[in-house]
Simulated assay, not measured.
Amino acid sequence: MEFATIEQTAFIYYHFLAVSGVPANFLTIVILSRGGCGLSKGITLYLVGMTTVDLLVIIFNVIIYYLLSYYFPGSPLNYTSMIRINEVINYVVVDCSVWLTVAFTVDRFVLICCQKFRQKYCREKTAAVIIVTVCVVFCFKNIPLYFAFEPVYVINNVQWGVQFKATYFTLPGWATYDWFDTVLNPLLPYFLILFLNALTVRHIVLVNRTRRALQGQCNIQNSDDPEIQSRRKSIILLFSISGAFIVLWMPYVVFFLISRITDSHYKADQYSDPLLIADYTGDMFQLLSSCSNTCIYALAQTKFRQKLRIAVMYPFSVIIKCVK
């Protein structure tokens, strides 16, 4: 099968995501679960939840949906019923990934900006309840999608492939569901994260200005202030994760808004169409967000880098000991 340039790029890219994303996310889950990274139990729970969902995105959305279905075109993976299930799972894990990032952003916003409320909210129990609630809600929310697809063709009474039913775009019920799904992901979480980060930056600027005025410019240096040091660590982690989310989802959101506002469409076989290229690019960047958190932890957290280095070097240490 001959691929167009954008298809070849995406195909190679998805192999890269699969090879690097699975071990990176798995290793991150193990390291964070063992603790000792200098993070509170609540924030560790959020990060483990986010990384677990990101791992599932790579497994179901990249490996099974894109790669295995290509390498095994005649396998049951391409039966209509199997693709329907996989489509629902893909929507669930992507929704959970996005909204756990929102939940993490809210938690950091409360910690930094809401001193009276943070003792009650920023706890391990609250994090556990929110993570479970997000997963359950989006599991139920995406169940109707199973019935939105129909087979592309039928061979010997076996249904193959999936496509949206024509009624999905015409019936009021499906149209309402589609807009509800659109608002929940990506519009609301994307702009909610932008809004919360803007409020956080505003709060930080005002607080730092007030602290400098109270302390005196020549009295205590900001770098020696424990409160500012603690806040700085939370800010680095918050802006690293939510900032990466905003950047990596931006092509997808821009493409989505342009295509919806202008009511533009493209044909699946017109690979030179800028709209199709933009759609492919948005999907690739969006899926990259499922691999980026490991790099963010490594760059932002000293203790995590140390533990990651030990974990990576452990197999080599065992081999060296065996050789000796």
Rank of each mutant, 00 (worst) to 15 (best):
N156H: 13
N157D: 15
F147Q: 05
L206Y: 09
T167L: 03
C218Q: 05
D225L: 08
F191D: 04
N222I: 08
G216Q: 09
F195R: 11
I143Q: 02
V98G: 03
V132C: 14
W160Q: 09
V201S: 01
L196V: 05
T133A: 15
V183H: 09
I193G: 06
N156R: 14
Q159Y: 02
T167R: 10
T182E: 08
N156W: 06
A148P: 03
D107K: 00
Q215L: 06
V136L: 15
P189Q: 09
A127V: 12
Y146I: 13
V154K: 10
V136E: 05
Y177S: 07
L187H: 06
F169P: 03
W174H: 13
T126I: 03
C139D: 00
P186F: 05
N197C: 13
N197P: 01
A198C: 14
L100N: 02
R212E: 02
R123K: 12
F117P: 00
Y177V: 04
N219Y: 11
Q221V: 03
Q115W: 09
I193W: 06
V132L: 15
V137H: 09
A148C: 07
Q215S: 04
L171T: 06
R118N: 12
Y146L: 13
F169M: 04
V158L: 10
L192M: 14
V183L: 15
I204P: 02
Y168A: 07
A127D: 10
V129F: 15
E150I: 09
Y190F: 15
F147M: 09
Y121M: 07
V106I: 15
Q217S: 12
L187Q: 02
G173I: 05
V92T: 08
F180D: 08
Q221T: 06
L111R: 00
F117A: 06
R212T: 01
E124Y: 11
A175G: 04
W174N: 05
Q163N: 07
V92I: 15
P172W: 05
Q119E: 06
F149H: 10
E124R: 13
I155H: 05
L206Q: 14
T200H: 08
I204Y: 06
V110I: 10
I131H: 14
A127R: 12
L171D: 13
V201P: 00
G173R: 01
R211L: 12
D224Q: 13
N222R: 11
L199F: 10
A128N: 05
F117N: 02
C96Y: 04
H203C: 03
V98F: 05
E124F: 10
K165H: 00
I220S: 14
Y153N: 13
L196G: 04
L214F: 10
A166F: 02
C96R: 03
L145V: 10
A166Q: 13
P189G: 11
P189W: 11
V136P: 07
V136N: 09
V158Q: 14
V207Y: 08
C96Q: 09
V137Y: 14
I143N: 02
W174V: 03
A148V: 04
V207D: 07
L194V: 01
V137S: 07
F109D: 03
V201N: 01
F164Q: 01
V110S: 00
R211S: 00
T170F: 04
A175F: 03
Y190W: 13
W160T: 01
I143C: 02
I131M: 12
N208K: 12
I193L: 07
Y153M: 12
F191Q: 07
P144S: 08
F164W: 04
V106Y: 07
